[in-house]
Amino acid sequence: MGHEWLSLWSFLYGPLSIFLVGLYGLLTQKNLIKMAISINIMDYGVNLFIISLGYVPSAEAPIYTDAVKTYLPVFADPLPQALVLTAIVISVAVTAFILALTIKIHSQYGTTDLTKLGEMEL
């Protein structure tokens, strides 16, 4: 059972750590671009986590082909994959918006540093 530890890392704690690295970045970074990067990293962690939950031992991709003609219990779960597909597209949509926002903030205030922006605004 030496694999137990490794599989816990790769299926649970690893993806969660990547997610939390993103959250950590959001809390500590002051640059708006770096905050957008942190959001993206958070999404990577979440996506990895979801796909890991769909992984089934000795799985094949959930596509019927000449090799796998009928249902055999060897497929990876297609549902988490579909969720991640949606999540990736939504995250790129949010990224496009937040970066455009950053560019506008920069052209209005001349900085992307949150501490300086805070002094100007409040």
Partner: peptide, 29 residues
């Protein structure tokens, strides 16, 4: 042109949606 408030909104609701995805996927599993 309330850029800064909107930025805060985007960040917070992105964090919220990440939490939502983790919860939903775990619940599904």
């Amino acid at each position: 042109k309330g850029y800064l408030g909107t930025f805060r909104f985007v960040v917070l609701s992105s964090v919220g949606s990440a939490f939502f995805l983790i919860a939903t996927a775990s619940l599904y599993n």
